[in-house]
Design a protein around this nucleic acid. Sequence first.
DNA 1: AGATAAATGAAAATGATTCTCATTATCATT
DNA 2: AATGATAATGAGAATCATTTTCATTTATCT
Lengths: 136, 136
Amino acid sequence: MRVEKASSTKIKNTKQRELILNELRKLMSHPTAEELYKIVVKKNPKIGLCTIYRNLETFYKQGLVGKICTKPVRYDGDMSKHSHIRCTSCGKIGDIFFNVPINPVEIQKLGYKLQGYKIEITGLCSSCIKKQKREE
Amino acid sequence: MRVEKASSTKIKNTKQRELILNELRKLMSHPTAEELYKIVVKKNPKIGLCTIYRNLETFYKQGLVGKICTKPVRYDGDMSKHSHIRCTSCGKIGDIFFNVPINPVEIQKLGYKLQGYKIEITGLCSSCIKKQKREE
DNA sequence: AGATAAATGAAAATGATTCTCATTATCATT
DNA sequence: AATGATAATGAGAATCATTTTCATTTATCT
């Protein structure tokens, strides 16, 4: 008889979970939990904000959604390979589709096992560039 | 007569500021404000935690230190070009010295003005790899 | 259907960070 | 060195995103 490993808790499919994931996937933006809550609560007025928080984290751990560690945290329903650019002036986050070659072997040499990587580019978005010019 | 732009407030050199920056630069780690506070307060017992927070943000905006947007936020006294790898198991952050070519022109095409970029690599550090194997 | 385990909702708790404001320190000038 | 202007400090309160707790509900398995 041997001791089992800590049980991998089985995730249950609830209506809330489905609703949250669907609504996030519909969006082209990168909403915060709060922002997504405001959308979701229209379809299910009984849902609680903490359910959004909980499920977004679960989705992220399952690899179903992306997470952008700004403050507040933002989530991304689009899992295609892309990077983000954040405007340092207004905070807006845009998508950038281009590849950066990261070599897993290089990482292995350093003693790490590569799991993923994220590139966060910072810059000024077009509307903030215009705004800045007007102020000069 | 023309209206001047909002004054660029002059930064004053205080003993606290100097102490905080020096201590951060001595470290090879990526401390949180709290962690740095514990070091700094030994040399200046009257210093307040909020002074650490304030100055770290100021240093970051001045481009004197790096900022790693984990939670809690971590700062980096080493401004040489490098990336970070964060262990998804223990949270430890290591330095990785390798270059990723980001082309400012590509970013410009998308309407943005490139300011900087960060690569955050996630993986398992060597000690967490060992730990995982032991548990299997 | 009944048992089991996980998810929910509500409210409270947490924890990092930021704000306020009275006081103090710095810096450029007299 | 004294002055005046302005920025920084320290203390505590406030904020805000996020997480925890716990009683209840729901999903899934047999």
